[in-house]
């Protein structure tokens, strides 16, 4: 593969948006004023029209690759052919960042299509660390691992999620993609203390932040927050985001919206709001 000509490479410490298929045309025609874009890697592993659209976007914006299919938590390991395909794509578009999730999706030869929770055990920690190391070796670069949202806990878990992820980063040298909405959703569902969560996570090298919407549903007379990426970022998550950037400074921040996709301008409005928060931080740093 030959790399597409482009203007800039690194992902700036500014607000970007997730690029989804229904917005391909609008993005190319309208050229929205956002700092960068991110796509789901697995949607562009082939050629043809999707890749052509991605390359057109790449000529205008830095692009980050966010994977949903590698299954970094699989006991069976990760598929190195999949990694090769990801590397070819990353090389082709000169991806600014490459990430995947602290979760699993593949077991016994079946890909389940969801980001499933891991038992937080020493064995799982060894498995994830080994898989992340293979991922980084295969990509020839440092990758980011994202904290998940979750709706259940395993009885035999022994390590808090925030310590688990920090330890993965420590062992492998990977960076962390901090999804503030995921942290809020999981903490709400499990009664976690977010101060403890962030005190631990913010000691890692956070190279990207995700913001998204979630819904509230009732299960067995109990309210559960579900990370469905189908609505605006809620006020509580914006407040947490302000706290995070106050502590660690400006970080590339993505607005994720995957379901019930609104017009492109709505995503740009959300990114603009994130940018005002990042801008204040940058102004404070400059002063």
């Amino acid at each position: 593969m030959s790399a597409v000509p482009h203007r800039v490479s690194p992902i700036p410490a500014a607000a970007g948006i997730g690029l989804r298929f229904p917005h391909h045309r609008a993005v190319i025609e309208d050229k929205p004023v956002v700092a960068w874009m991110e796509v789901h890697s697995e949607n562009y592993l082939g050629g043809g029209e999707p890749l052509k659209a991605l390359e057109a976007a790449r000529r205008e914006w830095p692009i980050s690759l966010h994977g949903v299919g590698l299954s970094l938590g699989s006991a069976d390991g990760i598929d190195l052919t999949h990694v090769k395909r990801l590397k070819a794509l990353a090389d082709r578009i000169d991806a600014g960042l490459v990430s995947d999730h602290l979760s699993w999706s593949i077991a016994d030869g079946a890909y389940l299509g969801d980001l499933l929770p891991l038992p937080m055990t020493e064995e799982a920690l060894d498995v994830v660390a080994a898989n992340v190391a293979r991922f980084q070796d295969g990509m020839g670069r440092r990758v980011l691992v994202e904290n998940p949202s979750s709706y259940l806990r395993y009885r035999h878990s022994t390590i808090p999620e925030w310590e688990f992820l920090a330890e993965v980063a420590k062992r492998t040298g990977c960076a962390v993609l901090l999804d503030v909405n995921n942290a809020y959703v999981s903490a709400s569902n499990h009664g976690w203390d977010l101060t403890t969560y962030f005190d631990s996570i913010l000691t890692t090298d956070i190279l990207e932040i995700h913001l998204a919407g979630h819904s509230v549903r009732t299960f067995k007379d109990r309210q559960i927050r579900v990370d469905d990426h189908a609505s605006p970022v809620c006020d509580a998550v914006w407040a947490l985001y302000r706290q995070v950037v106050d502590r660690i400074g400006a970080v590339p921040t993505l607005i994720e919206w995957d379901n019930d996709l609104p017009p492109l301008s709505r995503l740009v409005d959300e990114a603009d709001f994130a940018q005002t928060i990042l801008g204040k931080t940058a102004d404070a740093d400059a002063a």
Binding site: V68, G69, R85, S105, I106, G109, Y111, G113
Partner: peptide, 11 residues
Amino acid sequence: YPPALGCLNDW
């Protein structure tokens, strides 16, 4: 016939 890998375009 579950998908074997995390790229559903191939399934």
